[in-house]
């Protein structure tokens, strides 16, 4: 057995490269898999809250934020919030409300795995109304083809969701602590309803 130290190190070099290669692959795969494997992401947290709050669908108010009673981390305590957890397999969804143009109202549309595919505030309401239809590609196509021939163009904004499941988070700002009630009543005026596609 030779005891030439530089040579022994050279022998180990390919194994070092192999280790780094494996480390790189494991790192990339684990980062990419994290959104699918994370058991407690925002969608899971909200879905389990909605389930415990009884209604099977539609808009559900989140409890007022307090230490130890936050549904989601990193939310602004100045806000009242409501969520609409959906599954498009049952049909497309319509979110509708009117805004007064004064108080901040934010709507964000979240798909699976932490992706926001659309977000807006009351500033982008059209003529004081927010009217948004969320569907998968097939449902939006069906709506578009049902339009043809009809005289007035649709007033609603149509969004194609990237995944069947997801949630719409609606945030209503209470400018002062005493405005919480008002902020919550603005949320309860919002409807988030599943509807049936037009036949034919």
């Amino acid at each position: 057995m030779r005891l030439n130290i530089p040579d022994r190190y050279l022998d180990l070099l390919p194994w070092l490269f192999a280790t780094l290669l494996v480390a790189g692959i494991v790192h990339i795969v684990s980062v990419l898999l994290m959104p699918t494997l994370a058991p407690n992401d925002a969608l899971a947290r909200l879905a389990s809250y909605v389930k415990s709050a009884a209604p099977a669908e539609g808009l559900v108010m989140l409890p007022q934020m307090a230490p130890g009673a936050e549904t989601l981390p990193f939310e602004d305590p100045a806000f009242a919030e409501a969520v609409c957890v959906y599954d498009l397999a049952k049909g497309p969804l319509r979110v509708k409300t009117s805004v007064d143009g004064e108080d901040f109202l934010g709507l964000s549309f979240h798909g699976v795995a932490g992706r926001i595919y659309h977000s807006m505030t009351d500033r982008s309401a059209i003529k004081g109304k927010i009217d948004i239809v969320v569907g998968d590609a097939r449902q939006i196509d069906a709506l578009t083809s049902a339009d043809e021939g009809d005289a007035p163009p649709p007033q609603e904004v149509r969004l194609t969701a990237p995944a069947k499941r997801g949630f719409i988070l609606i945030r209503s700002l209470a400018k002062r602590a005493s405005d919480q009630e008002r902020a919550r009543s603005r949320l309860s005026a919002i409807s988030c309803q599943r509807f049936d596609l037009p036949q034919g």
Binding site: M34, A38, N40, A42, R45, P73, S108, G114
Partner: peptide
Amino acid sequence: ADIDPYARAVISRSGEAPLGRDQ
């Protein structure tokens, strides 16, 4: 929608729903 894979992994792990860019 152009969130990178690292940010998606962090958000899914912490369970937060970030503010939309247009908000």
